[in-house]
């Protein structure tokens, strides 16, 4: 069996192997309680990675995701006393708008997405700093529970974050597999010139992909701020690298066109296992990003489609 054929199965094989290795090192890791908590903890990151999947699937990238999430934690905290549940809508619209802006800059002004999203990320970051007065803000516990308590409760021993993540992944799978947008996304990712020559409005598809990415980053930020009961313009720092790693180790290469949201689910679980294994193997928290950096390099080198990228700059 050739490497090309194994390649599509690599993500889940990696996941199973990692779980087995960590489980052998410490059997406590495999206890359901531990696994469930681990999954619940990773949900905000997963939601961000889910959005990132759309940007990477069309061959782009969204470097603004972390800053958008940062900004939303501030917006959610500031807007909660005034708008209650409505704060969620403001967050979603803000994320959608910034994502669409990245998409517009990429498709209409023809700026590569790694630059356009970096710039839009700068805008989001600074908006968060401005709104927060560069301080960490806290939510009023009563107001938080009244409006968003449902997000972080616990039913039948399962944290509600898992349901939130579950609903979003189902919606994303439906969008990807059953809608004209999902099909157009696939065509743009796999063969953009043919998509253009089939009369697909490629610019609109791309703008929508970035808008979705921005929106999901905002939802990730919202959930994160509800979990931590507060917001700050730097609270989600450290999310970006693992989110990109999750998409890539899941099997959606930087060149786009293959993989998808289910792959990102597996990729995020791999990230979750790596992250908790670092606790078991006593790797210092400050070194985590180093590990993710190395994993990212390995994942890119393994998954990228060289035939689509002849020239590397």
């Amino acid at each position: 069996m050739s490497f090309e054929r194994i390649k599509t199965h690599l993500p889940w094989i990696t996941l199973v192997l990692l779980v087995a290795i960590v489980g052998m090192a410490d059997a406590n890791f495999l206890r359901p309680h531990n696994l469930i908590n681990m999954a619940a903890d990773i949900v905000p990151l997963f939601i961000m990675a889910l959005g990132m999947t759309f940007a990477i699937y069309i061959g782009g990238i969204d470097l603004s995701a972390q800053s958008v999430a940062n900004m939303t934690t501030v917006i959610a905290t500031v807007a909660l006393p005034v708008f209650g549940v409505g704060a969620a809508l403001i967050c979603v619209v803000a994320g959608l708008g910034l994502g669409a802006l990245s998409g517009f800059v990429t498709t209409r002004l023809l700026v590569p997405s790694f630059v356009s999203t970096l710039a839009v990320g700068g805008i989001a970051y600074s908006a968060g700093q401005y709104l927060s007065g560069q301080r960490a803000l806290y939510m009023n516990a009563e107001m938080r529970d009244a409006s968003f308590g449902w997000m972080v409760g616990n039913s039948f021993g399962i944290p509600h974050e898992i349901f939130v993540g579950g609903v979003l992944v189902l919606a994303a799978v439906f969008l990807q597999n059953r809608t004209t947008f999902g099909r157009a996304l696939k065509a743009v990712g796999a063969g953009e010139p043919a998509a253009v020559a089939s009369g697909i409005n490629v610019a609109r598809v791309k703008i929508m992909a970035f808008a979705l990415s921005g929106m999901l980053a905002a939802i990730a930020g919202l959930l994160f701020s509800v979990k931590l009961s507060g917001g700050s313009p730097t609270i989600a720092n450290g999310f970006l690298l693992p989110a990109i790693v999750a998409v890539l180790v899941g099997g959606t290469p930087l060149t786009g066109g293959v993989g998808g949201v289910v792959n990102t689910l597996i990729g995020t679980l791999i990230v979750a296992v790596i992250r908790s294994s670092m606790l078991y193997f006593e790797i210092d928290a400050t070194q985590q990003q180093m590990v993710f950096g190395l994993v990212l390099i390995a994942a890119i080198a393994l998954t990228i489609d060289r035939s689509k990228m002849r020239i590397v700059k």
Binding site: A190, P193, I200
Partner: peptide, 15 residues
């Protein structure tokens, strides 16, 4: 420009 490799036959036909 003609076909999208990676999409199957029916996906290409209705693109």
């Amino acid at each position: 420009e003609g076909i999208v490799g990676g999409l199957n036959v029916y996906e290409n036909m209705t693109l």
